[in-house]
Simulated scan of single mutants.
Amino acid sequence: MSSKEEKLELVRGSGNVFRDFGHPNADLMQAKAILAAKIIAAMDDRGWTALAAEKATGVTHTDLSRIRNVKLDRFTLDRMITILGKVDQDMEVTIDVKPRGHGDLVHA
């Protein structure tokens, strides 16, 4: 069978790539990733390196470098929210809680 004739299965993700790959703390990991992306975007918008951001915010450049390199295991959500505030970003939180289904991926 040629590659043109192969049938591909379409798999719709859950909206959380960490959940789709079976990580046990998927929701926490997704929340940290979103906050990290917002922190990085705020730094980039200002043209800040980690050292420049340290001077402006008081957050150590090593912590900011860890965030930029997505090494987030040392960070709690509240610490990341605090850092987000220090880069002049306001945050509004909405949480939706729903029962888990049997199998988070939807096959179409």
Rank of each mutant, 00 (worst) to 15 (best):
R46N: 07
I39H: 04
R68T: 05
K38A: 02
L72S: 14
K55L: 11
T49A: 05
A42L: 11
V70E: 15
A56C: 13
R74D: 13
A33V: 08
N69S: 05
W48I: 09
A50K: 09
R74L: 08
T49M: 07
T76W: 00
A53C: 05
T76Q: 03
R66L: 04
A37M: 11
D63H: 06
D78W: 04
F75A: 13
E54C: 04
W48H: 09
A52W: 01
F75K: 14
A33N: 13
L77M: 11
R66W: 01
I40L: 12
D63P: 11
T60P: 06
K32Q: 11
K55E: 15
A52D: 15
R66M: 09
A52C: 08
K32Y: 01
G47N: 10
G58I: 05
Q30C: 07
I40V: 11
G58D: 12
I81S: 13
Q30D: 14
A53R: 12
A31N: 13
M43D: 08
K55F: 01
I67H: 06
D44M: 03
T60R: 08
T49S: 10
V70K: 15
N69C: 02
K71V: 05
A52E: 15
A53Y: 00
D63I: 07
A50I: 04
R46Y: 00
Q30L: 09
R68H: 02
I34P: 13
D63Y: 02
K38Q: 07
R46H: 02
F75G: 14
I39Y: 01
D44C: 05
L64V: 04
Q30F: 01
V59P: 13
K55G: 10
F75R: 14
A41K: 07
V59M: 09
E54I: 02
A56W: 03
D44E: 12
G47R: 12
T82P: 04
A53T: 06
R79V: 03
M80G: 13
V70L: 13
L72K: 13
A37F: 01
A41G: 03
V59F: 00
L72N: 15
R74F: 01
D73T: 04
A52K: 14
I34Q: 14
L77W: 03
R68D: 05
T60Y: 00
I81H: 09
M43N: 08
K32A: 04
I40E: 15
R74E: 14
H61A: 07
A56V: 10
S65C: 04
G47M: 08
R66A: 07
E54K: 07
K38F: 00
V59H: 07
A53I: 03
L72D: 15
D44Q: 12
D78F: 02
D78E: 14
I67N: 11
T49G: 06
T62E: 12
R46K: 07
R68W: 00
T49H: 03
L51S: 11
R79F: 01
T82K: 09
